[in-house]
Write a protein that binds this DNA or RNA. Structure first.
Length: 189
DNA sequence: TAGGCCATCTGGTCCT
DNA sequence: AGGACCAGATGGCCTA
């Protein structure tokens, strides 16, 4: 990722805070209502509860008494956790919405995130190629947007960093790649 | 049982 | 200052 216009951030070395398995569970941990009850085929009933218990992720030192400064710090951390959870739920909703508009073969099996992104990318490319092909064939010569569209498309591809292979320079390449990908997902590879 | 995928926690960094 | 974003860490569930 890191698609934002930020300079690459240097991550500080991870400091393993002393794990305190017994006391790491803050009383304030919510039972995680979870707006999205895990719509995938896999049901993970224990996950939310486990997360709320502090399982998974780093542990924080246990609280050291009511009313302490650590309490307010923990309270802020819990609020931050909740916001992060909501953020991830929104992200997952977006993934789900994307899954629902991508045609794929194995409808019985939920696409993983990486599969969703990869298929979406190639689906967009194939649609773009189809549009270009149709518009250029329907409007031959200098009239109409076809040639300009195609020129624009080629410029975009070149400006994208030249990461595309030779086959992708042709509209048929996208279609082929997309269908190949769908096939490979069907095969489960 | 190993590996893939995922949810959650966490702390650093950036943005408003 | 507080929230958003990000990525590492951790552990659970599922499938081959």
């Amino acid at each position: 990722m890191k698609t934002k216009n930020r300079p690459p951030r240097r991550r500080a070395p991870v400091q393993h805070t002393e794990a305190t398995p017994g006391e790491g569970t803050p009383e304030g941990s919510l039972p995680n209502p979870g707006p999205e009850p895990s719509k995938g085929l896999r049901s993970r009933p224990a996950r939310a509860a486990a997360g709320a218990r502090g399982e998974g992720g780093r542990r924080r030192p246990g609280p050291s008494g009511p009313g302490s400064r650590r309490d307010s710090s923990i309270q802020r951390r819990l609020e931050s956790n909740e916001r992060e959870r909501q953020r991830m739920h929104k992200l997952n909703n977006a993934f789900q919405a994307l899954r629902e508009v991508i045609p794929h073969v194995r409808a019985d099996k939920k696409l993983s995130k990486i599969e969703t992104l990869t298929l979406a990318k190639n689906y967009i490319k194939s649609l773009t190629a189809t549009i270009l092909t149709m518009s250029s064939s329907r409007l031959p010569g200098l009239e109409g947007p076809g040639p300009k569209l195609y020129q624009h498309y080629q410029q975009q591809q070149q400006g994208a960093g030249g990461t595309l292979g030779a086959t992708e320079a042709q509209p048929q390449g996208h279609l082929q790649r997309y269908s190949t990908q769908i096939h490979s997902f069907r095969e489960g590879t």
